[in-house]
């Protein structure tokens, strides 16, 4: 793949040296939904994504990720709904790499990101070029109607900011994803990620500091006294990602909240069951 426009920039130039033929082949195999200059309207660009994804793959390899059930991904539109935890969206990164590398055919996952991310310099661009999209119903509907794969974390910030005591206990799901699934007639694939909720352990959320820094939460690692800022580097835990059977839902998308919540709870229960199974099956967190 030729370097994209703007590859003069130092960062992309540096990243351009990290070429991963397997990922490049996967990007080349994606259906083309791009304009003449290689972008979609959210800013995804496979040439630049192929430069960022090797970093994600390094994380995937660092966690010695094991995947199960990727053949459960249906063709066409799909909503991937995993558990969420671990302070940073490492779970999302690993799922995205898994679907691109092992999906048959390779699937580009469009993660719905928090409203906080577009404000972060550099990060916002890397995310957009790699296919991430602001978590918003209009974005989601447009992508689903275009038969793409969406990754949503219905636990939201409450999920990713969990302390270590709360690990693998799912926070209540929001109902937005279920309305979108009903509205666009999209199957929901429950996903469990084991390992992610221990990768960056937090014993406390320092809310006042988070507020001061305009962050959604500020985790306190138990290793801070020992390691200082290095305490926030992810531990080399082992990740296991399991894709469940697609779940299909019928009914009006604009039903009362309670009716939608009931359906969302069915998905939450399934993800929790898969997480519990995964935890029982593992021998060591490393």
């Amino acid at each position: 793949m030729s370097p994209p426009y703007g590859a003069k920039r130092a960062l992309l130039h540096f990243l351009s040296r990290r070429v991963d033929p397997e990922l490049e082949a996967a990007f080349a195999a994606l259906p083309n939904r791009l304009n003449d200059l290689g972008f979609d309207m959210w800013g995804f660009n496979p040439a630049e994504a192929a430069r960022y994804y090797p970093l994600a793959r390094s994380l995937y390899d660092y966690f010695r990720t094991e995947i199960h059930g990727v053949e459960n991904l249906p063709a066409g539109r799909v909503l991937l709904v995993p558990n969420h935890g671990g302070q940073l969206p490492l779970d999302g990164i690993v799922i995205a790499v898994a679907c691109l590398r092992h999906g048959a055919p390779p699937r580009l996952v469009r993660p719905m990101v928090e409203r906080w991310f577009p404000k972060l310099p550099y990060v916002n661009e890397a995310l957009a070029r790699s296919g991430a999209v602001l978590g918003d119903p209009v974005n989601c509907i447009n992508l689903l109607e275009d038969d793409q794969a969406i990754l949503v974390f219905p636990e939201g910030i409450a999920g990713s900011g969990k302390t270590i005591r709360e690990r693998y206990r799912l926070k209540p799901f929001g109902r937005g994803f279920m309305r979108l699934a009903l509205r666009t007639n999209t199957p929901v694939v429950p996903v469990s990620v084991i390992g992610s909720e221990e990768a960056i352990p937090s014993v406390h959320n320092l809310a006042p500091l988070a507020k001061l820094l305009h962050m959604p939460y500020f985790p306190v690692s138990p290793f801070v006294p020992l390691l200082g800022p290095f305490a926030y580097l992810p531990l080399p835990v082992k990740f296991t990602v399991t894709f469940g059977e697609p779940m299909r839902f019928d009914g009006p998308w604009d039903d009362e909240d309670a009716a939608i919540d009931d359906k969302a709870a069915v998905v939450q229960a399934e993800v929790q069951r898969m997480v519990d199974d995964g935890l029982r099956a593992r021998h060591s967190i490393f």
Partner: peptide, 13 residues
């Protein structure tokens, strides 16, 4: 207009 492009791509073009 026709294509949606990033600002720096526009400057490069």
């Amino acid at each position: 207009g026709s294509d949606v492009i990033p600002w720096r791509t526009a400057l490069d073009l």
